[in-house]
Design a protein around this nucleic acid. Structure first.
Lengths: 220, 220
DNA sequence: TTAATTAAATGACCGACGGTCAGTTATCAA
DNA sequence: TTGATAACTGACCGTCGGTCATTTAATTAA
């Protein structure tokens, strides 16, 4: 289980998994420091203490790397939702939980925003299918818990979950613009960029959507 | 107004505008044939009958080109909504109109999906601000007409418009995956990709959102 | 008509990047 | 100790977006 720091080569499966984890950690560091465009495979190799060729033994492409990071983040979001959302929570509270979960899970929002147009567009088929299956399973888990806490029937929850996911995708997109440093922005642009931050965009929308579906569910 | 086909150089402003229009047209052709990744500046120059350097006299970067294309598409979407949505239309009908407008305006959805993560990320500040101002103005026009046809008050329409735009962004993202040729997809993936096409994703969500906001507006 | 001026057009060139592969060498089993 | 395995390396490649010194068409001045 423990890999020697000075170990030169990863032979066992455990060691290989640790190598990959090290690569993902190095990628997270670079993203924190220089954003997604700051990630280059040469730079990543250097940061992870490997040659560039070695990187490709553990990650098939740059986009697959991002996909792996997103899977981890999505996993965390679903786990937290299952742990925190309780039966009987109000629409407002659920909307708040979803917002907080998404916002405070590192890299979730920026990766979600880039998932389709940037990441999926450049991943080979096989790893894409693998990831997609995992994402669908996670989405299903999330939907099931949502049905449980809201009391929405299994026939309606899929539409509800899809609508919420769509809103979250859109809000994640807007949030990229909102994250821009206001320094150097013209005055009229400052508002235009900042007004679309994730929380004030998503939370009221999620609440509206949840209330619209939960109201009849409670009556019926 | 009429530019000679064999005109070698664009001197007047009209001629320059026509050159740029020709470049945009060539870009549309390439996108139709080979998708967005098929657009390279060398290939575009060849298609437009120009040297690569000349391209950069009319478009400051590849992403600014896409931004210009999106502005045209957005313009068309807003125009069509203003022309087609009438006072008294039901939520279901409005949702249908929005869906059709988005779906049948060439390039609108794929460009919308790429707008933030791909396009904005790589456009210089000045052209970005110019485009953003135009987009905000168009969004405002759209909102005003939406307020008029739904009877939603001016204090609420901004939130409504934002929620709808978020859902449309998300649906546009999903639609990219859904557009993938099912050929060669594993059976279980075929459903997963196809199920998220734009119309069946967006239209019911838009209807739900519109009904939630229009119901109290009609009562009050 | 000709010469001087302007600026549109050109394409060879550059740097950066993602990805590859023939060769090297650490590790382990015999 | 030796041979086999496969983890590792980094020089190299092709592509692409973007630049700029130079060319040349079009316009203006002489």
């Amino acid at each position: 289980m423990v890999l020697e720091d000075n170990a030169k080569r990863a032979r066992s499966e455990d060691q290989k998994a640790e190598r990959q984890a090290g690569i993902l950690a190095a990628a997270r560091e670079i993203i924190d420091e220089s954003g997604f465009d700051g990630v280059t495979m040469s730079g990543l190799a250097k940061r992870a203490g490997l040659a560039k060729g070695t990187l490709y033994l553990y990650v098939r492409s740059k986009e697959e790397l991002f996909l792996l990071l997103f899977l981890e983040a999505m996993d965390e979001v679903v786990d937290r939702f299952k742990a925190n959302a309780k039966l009987g929570d109000s629409a407002a509270h659920l909307a708040h939980l979803m917002t907080e979960n998404a916002l405070t899970t590192p890299l979730f929002l920026p990766l979600f925003a880039r998932l389709v147009a940037v990441i999926e567009a450049n991943v080979a088929d096989e790893p894409l299918f693998t990831a997609k299956r995992r994402l669908l399973a996670l989405g299903h888990e999330w939907s099931m818990h949502l049905a449980y806490v809201t009391g929405v029937g299994p026939d309606q929850v899929e539409a509800l979950a899809r609508t919420l996911m769509m809103a979250m995708q859109g809000a994640a997109q807007f949030d990229i613009s909102a994250q821009r440093d206001p320094e150097g922005l013209p005055d009229d642009m400052r508002e235009a960029f900042g007004a679309y931050a994730f929380a004030p965009s998503f939370e009221p929308s999620a609440r509206l959507i949840l209330e619209a579906v939960m109201a009849p569910a409670l009556e019926g």
